[in-house]
Structure formats: C-alpha cells, structure tokens
Nucleic acid binder design. Structure first.
Length: 489
RNA sequence: GCCCCUGUGGCGCAGUUGGUUAGCGCAGCGGACUUUUAAUCCGAGGGUCGUGGGUUCGAGUCCCACCGGGGGCACCA
C-alpha cells in the first residue's frame, strides 16, 4: 500500500487546516435536546430555542438546496437541518466528510417528517477526519479492528460505548460503596521486588539505578495486609495486576482487581460483603438482580448458596471424598474424570483439580464454595474445625470464578512454613508457586489481628453485568500482537 | 504450545465442477435534486485476490510453507 490507506484525496483535505479553532462553544448535548423536545414538538414546528452542540458528522443527506446530517456526540445522535438559503457557507457544509468534528448552533425544530433537528444557523469545522469512517451500515465487524482502533469502535459500535460507560459506573459505584462502609482506598506498589499474593507467573523488569530485578505485581495482597499491621483496619485498592500467562476470551495479561481487607472479621464477613456488593451494583446500575448471561437467566440476588468444596465434589461424582481421602484413590478418580495430575500433588491439590474440572463449570447460579484445602491456600488461615482445610471461599457465578477470599493467615511461623513449602514446589519446577517474602513475615511478627480479605476480578464482574462473552469487550485497549508493518495487511 | 476455521479495492460482501478484460453495496470523485432517515438517480475511477513457492495449456478457486485474524484445548482470574 502506498499511503492511500483510507486517506482522503488532497482536494478534500481542506485549505483552511490552519484555521481550526482552539476552542468550541458547546452548551448542549444530543441526548439533552432529544430529552427536552422530542415529545413536545409537532412535525414542522420550530422553537425559538437556540442550542449549541458539537460532535462528529456520522451521516449526510444532501439534496440540492437542502441538506440533512446526523451529528453524534458522547450522549447520542441528533439530526442537523441545513437549508441552502439560511445555512452559512452551504456548499462547504455539504462538502463535510463523514467523521469530521463540527460545532453547530441553531434553533431546535422538527422537520415535516417529524424528525427532531437542530437547524444549522451557524457551524464551525473543528477537526477533519482524514481517514474514512467504517461502513455506515455495517460498522466494524472485524473484532481485531475494533480492539486495535477503539477510538473508531466507540463511535461506531453502540454496544462498546455502553459497556465501557457501564464499566466506569461500576468502578465508581464500588468506590462509593466501600467508602460508605468505612474502607480507606490506598495505593500500593506495582513494582515488587518479590512477586507474591497469588499463584501466577510474573512479568519481570529491571530498575537501572538500583540495578535490581523487579516484578510487576500479580496481586496487591501482601502490601494491603502490611497496612492492616500498620493500623488501617479497613483498606481497599482497585488496581491493575499483571500475570504472564496465556490469553483467552477470559484472560488479559493485565487486568483490574478489587482487593479489600478488614480487621476483626472472618471469611463470613466478606462472603456477605461480596453478595451484597454485587447485588447492589446490579440493582443500582441495571435496575434488577435478575440478569441474563449468554442468553441464560441468572439471579444475583443475595443471599447466594454456600457449600463446602468436598461436599460439592462428592455430590457430583457420587463418591464420598474429602481432604483425607488417600492420594492413590484421588489419582484414580482424576484418571477416571480425565483430569491430569502430577506426582507432587497431595490430596488437597488433587481435590481442587477434580473440583475445578468437574464442579466449577456446572455452578451457574452464584455459589460460594468454601473450605479449600490448606495445601492449595498458602495465605489462608487454617479452618477452626479442621486443620487440613482453610477458611477460604470462592464466589462462582455462571461457572466462573468471580472472587476469592479468606480469613487471613496471621501466624508468622505458619506463614513461613507455607512459604517454604511453596518455595520447594517452586524449586521443583512449579514456576507459579510463591517464594519466601521475608519482609512480609517481619510484618506478621509485629502482629496481624484477625483479618479477612477478598479479591474480585473487576473485568469478570463487568463481563457479567454487561453480558460480554469476551474480556476484550470490557478492556478498552486489550493486549494484542503487534500490528504488522503497514504494507502487508 | 496443540487442533480447527479464515484472509478478495478504504469498509462490508459475491465469485459457480479451476476457463476469456475479478463483480456488487457503502465510502471517495463529477453531475441532478428544498423534508431526508443506510435518501435517490446518472456518470467516471479505484483491486498484481495476505506473502512466497508448486500443480496445470490456464488458479481468487487445487497443493505446500510462512504471516495476520478468529474459535477451541491446555494454564490461569
């Protein structure tokens, strides 16, 4: 391609490029005008109300001595009505390109056919679009183009605008809700000397001045608990975390997590917090807790079902199993159910693998799965009724993990042992296992009170509430392969 | 990493069992039109069919490789 990749001809590029204004007078929005006048005016009626709007010209219908246009702004669309005899520089107005930014002022009126319009009594070209906009009827159908050129997608794909607006509202509502309950929002480091707080492979980077290896965080967990040690009893953070793992419709290498910690509470406190928060978001933003996901109904109303992991698994496979079931028997069950295992897996890990394979995808209605094996929960406090389990829960909705929380492990000695156990697995080839974080252990030495913690994947939550099947539909600029050099695509 | 699908002018598509100058709609260009709603009508342009090989008298169409994109599996949230 020789640079004519959708660019307009020279003729079209306009001679007054240098005359684009530095500001624009905008007092109204498309939505506001429709809201105010759509019901009131009769076809052919004119008001004396002068409005001033700005946006992109999305459609144009020139008819000799009369032109119509469709102007889009961030709130919606409104028709422009431009008669030759009253429109300043009518010829130039008709020559506008689709996608051009214009400011228009004029009276509000309805055409003979009853379409609410702004008469173009004055207009200014604010910026040109030198590349043509996508097909006005089909929009962008290639998903790759939608993700790469989100700046165009947002104009053309109504669904995209809706999803990202809702995402913003969700995050904002979460903040308000947490703050209303006495949680303090904090910011902890993204660059970690030791990656921790989750089981995942990190991205590595390097600080030149310190000549030190650093990792992009895989979770803020350990820093937030340091803050509870530091005397903030209720903290939360909404932030980006990074995991160097595969990408899929449900996984983007960087994603947003809400994590919160509360002193003096146990895991039951955050189970309730989760179901109430999600129900609140659904009610306040969607108007109902009865939603549908992928065409299938789903009730987010609290309370959600609670069930211990081993119980759910036993029920599903028809064999009584728990964390005390011998490894050999669980391996047999894994083989039977097409679930791969490794030699170093204990009963707890085998149980988890079986559960994730067999049970999790079947949990459609919101369910809190509780009492995870200690073996697979290196940061969770031991269950008060069973030393091989922990007081941990995951919230499963539509067959997917939405959140993960637990009574926090406070005992520095126990934590050290769990770290060391993880480190052994790490050395043994499991590059997702944790390593010992001595500073975190030092913090625990000063005393962490009884505490509960919770992490919610915001992207997954937004997917759920916007009925999106692909995480890329709720991430503005998802991670993609680098675009091929222009010329071959 | 493995498997399946896909790649035609700026955009959306059609291209019949491989057969003569690769079509259509939108956009863009020229023209007509004072109530359109993807406006309509007339006219003239624009593509070495992802790239590179191969089979064939002849390939957008068949074969191979590579590149891009999508979906599924595996790993994870």
């Amino acid at each position: 391609m020789t640079g004519q990749d959708g660019e307009r001809s020279e003729l079209q590029q306009g001679s007054e490029r240098s005359e684009f204004p530095y500001t624009a007078h905008v007092e109204n929005t498309a939505h506001e005008i429709v809201d105010r006048f759509a019901e009131q005016l009769d076809a052919g009626e004119e008001t004396g109300v002068v409005v001033s709007v700005a946006g992109r010209l999305m459609l144009r219908r020139v008819q000799g001595k009369l032109a119509f246009g469709t102007l889009a702004d961030h709130t919606g669309r409104i028709q422009l009505f431009a008669p030759a005899q009253s429109t300043p520089e009518f010829e130039a107005f008709c020559a506008l390109s689709l996608g051009d930014w214009v400011q228009v002022s004029g009276i509000v009126m309805k055409t003979k056919r009853g379409e609410l319009s702004v008469r173009v009594d004055g207009w200014t070209l604010l910026a040109q679009s030198r590349r043509s906009f996508p097909d006005k009827w089909h929009g962008i159908t290639d998903p790759d183009t939608r993700y790469r050129q989100r700046y165009v997608d947002l104009w053309v794909t109504e669904e995209a605008r809706r999803a990202f607006t809702l995402r913003s509202q969700i995050v904002s509502a979460i903040r308000r809700w947490m703050e209303d309950r006495g949680y303090l929002e904090v910011e902890t480091p993204v660059l970690h000397p030791i990656p921790g707080g989750a089981l995942a492979r990190p991205f590595a980077t390097h600080h030149n001045a310190l000549d030190q290896e650093l990792f992009l965080r895989i979770a803020p967990e350990l820093y937030l608990k340091r803050l509870v040690v530091g005397g903030f009893p209720k903290v939360f953070e909404i932030g980006r975390v990074f995991r160097n793992e595969g990408m899929s419709v449900r996984h983007n290498p960087e994603f947003t997590m809400l994590e919160c910690y509360e002193a003096y509470g146990d895991y039951r406190v955050h189970i309730e917090l989760t179901e109430q928060l999600v129900a609140h978001l659904a009610t306040s933003l969607l108007g109902t807790t009865e939603v549908s996901y992928g065409g299938r109904p789903l009730s987010l109303a609290a309370p959600w079902r609670r069930a211990p992991l081993a119980e759910l698994l036993s029920e599903q496979i028809g064999v009584e199993v728990d964390v005390r079931t011998p490894v050999a028997e669980l391996r047999r069950l894994c083989d039977q159910h097409d679930t791969p295992w490794k030699d170093h897996y204990g009963s707890g890990k085998l149980l988890l693998e079986l559960y994730e394979k067999i049970v999790e995808p079947t949990l459609w209605e919101p369910t809190f799965v509780t009492d995870y094996p200690k073996e697979v929960s290196p940061l969770s406090r031991v269950h008060r009724e069973d030393e091989l389990l922990t007081e941990r829960f995951e919230g499963i909705v539509a067959g997917r993990e939405l959140c993960n929380g637990f009574s926090e492990l406070c005992d520095p000695d126990d934590q050290r042992e769990r770290f060391e156990d993880q480190a052994r697995q790490n050395a043994g080839g499991d590059d997702e296992a944790m390593v010992v974080d001595d500073d975190y252990l030092r913090a625990l030495d000063y005393g962490l009170p009884p505490t509960v913690g919770l992490g919610i994947g915001i992207d997954r939550l937004v997917m759920l509430l916007t009925d999106s099947a692909n995480i890329r539909d709720v991430v503005l600029f998802p991670t993609l392969r680098p675009e091929q050099a222009a010329g071959s695509d």
